[in-house]
Simulated scan of single mutants.
Amino acid sequence: MLLWLGFAVLTAGVVAALLRPLLVGTPTDTSLQPTGTAVYRDQLAEIEADRARGLIAETEAEAARVEIARRLLATADATKDAPGTAASRELRTVATVVAAALPVLAIAVYLAVGAPNQPGQPFAARGPAPGAAPSVAQLVAKVEERLRSHPEDGRGWDVIAPVYLRLGRYPEAADAFQRALRLVGESTDRLAGLAEAHVLANDGIVTEIARKSYERLRELAPDRMEPRFWLAVAAEQDGRFEDAVKVYAQLLTEGEAAAPWRPMVEARWQTMRTKLGLATEPAPTAKKDAAPEAKSTGLAPALANEDVRAIQSLPDDARKQMIEDMVAGLDKRLRDNGRDLEGWQRLIRAYTVLGRREDALAALARARAAMTGEAQSLEALGALAQSLGLAS
């Protein structure tokens, strides 16, 4: 209530300042009153002096005094009855009433149509505006608030851990993955996330926790290349260059000929050979079976083996044009039907292999928009972007 009284006082002060010219009043002829009275007084003194010197008779002096008195009274009456004086009094009255009534009227209107009894709501606690989608920061804040009051909510830690990882909050991601593993159980995604968070939090160093996670991940998913690569990096960091060279060579042999990670692995393979004092030689090549070659276009498994052989038999220009046409066709199909995660992955890989990075980024953005609300699909797209060097 004191707040509203303060508002009322402030309003009254503002109104008074605006109406000040009316409260002060306007100049009138009353400012001439002191000067007029002095003139008449001087005239009376001159008449008395002339009578004393015998210049005028007593009768004439008396008549002059009466005339001066009449003028003095007329001047006083004119000043009293001047319209400006009465108007000033009326304006002062109106100004006083307005200054007093306006705050009272404002409070009365607010009490009638407002909600003075509603509790205050801090800005930080307010939700998004109606119809507006909450931001990532708001969603993360909500999950964090729940986890503070329910720290044993394994599902909450499982949800927020990959979000922390994508936001670059690596130490928090590592802690969240660790809690999710303890509370929800072991899975390949949680092990991979825990290992990745530790590696990124330590500037590429494969820590002991990351190494154990990758070793366990390799047991659960022996076909995945990610744990094998990082275990080779760990061997490098431990000075076991021979072990690292063997793993890199095996990856290059088993991997796709056009895999985006291949140049990086080749560079590390050559570096390890140099440290071992081995002679420079061409990097191991991928196996020459049909399936990997189909994947090397970035369109697998959209192509059958016959299609692959047909493409390989064409001249370079014709083969490139056919691949471009197939990529364009896939792009068009996904514009019409965007709920195809595998199609988006093939398109993004294809653009990357073709060196069209901007198109790959645009396709990644469209894929994420099409997969809004599907956490697993979005996570798969994020992992693909990370592996292709498209993550921002």
Rank of each mutant, 00 (worst) to 15 (best):
L278D: 04
R228N: 05
A232L: 13
G193D: 08
Q270H: 09
A290V: 03
P263C: 13
P282L: 14
E196P: 06
A192N: 13
F241E: 04
E242C: 00
G277Q: 10
T271G: 15
T280Y: 04
E254Y: 15
L191N: 10
L278I: 06
Q237N: 13
H198P: 02
D289P: 12
D223R: 05
F229P: 01
I209D: 11
E236C: 09
P260C: 07
P260D: 07
P263F: 13
Q250M: 15
A259F: 10
E254M: 15
G239E: 09
W261N: 03
R190G: 02
R262I: 07
A259T: 04
L252I: 03
P227N: 13
E219K: 12
T271R: 15
Q270S: 07
A192K: 13
A259C: 09
A235R: 04
R240V: 00
A244V: 06
R211T: 12
V233E: 02
L278T: 07
A232E: 10
G204H: 02
P282R: 15
V265E: 11
T274C: 08
E208F: 13
R228G: 02
F229Q: 08
T207H: 09
L191F: 13
A258R: 13
A221L: 03
T285G: 02
E208P: 03
Y248E: 06
A244F: 00
K246D: 02
W269I: 03
Y214Q: 02
G277A: 11
A279D: 08
A244S: 07
E208W: 10
E208Y: 13
L251Y: 07
A244K: 04
L252Q: 02
K246M: 05
L278G: 08
D289H: 15
D243Y: 04
P282S: 14
Q250I: 14
A283H: 09
W230F: 10
I209F: 05
S213G: 04
L278W: 12
Y214N: 04
A234S: 09
Q270W: 08
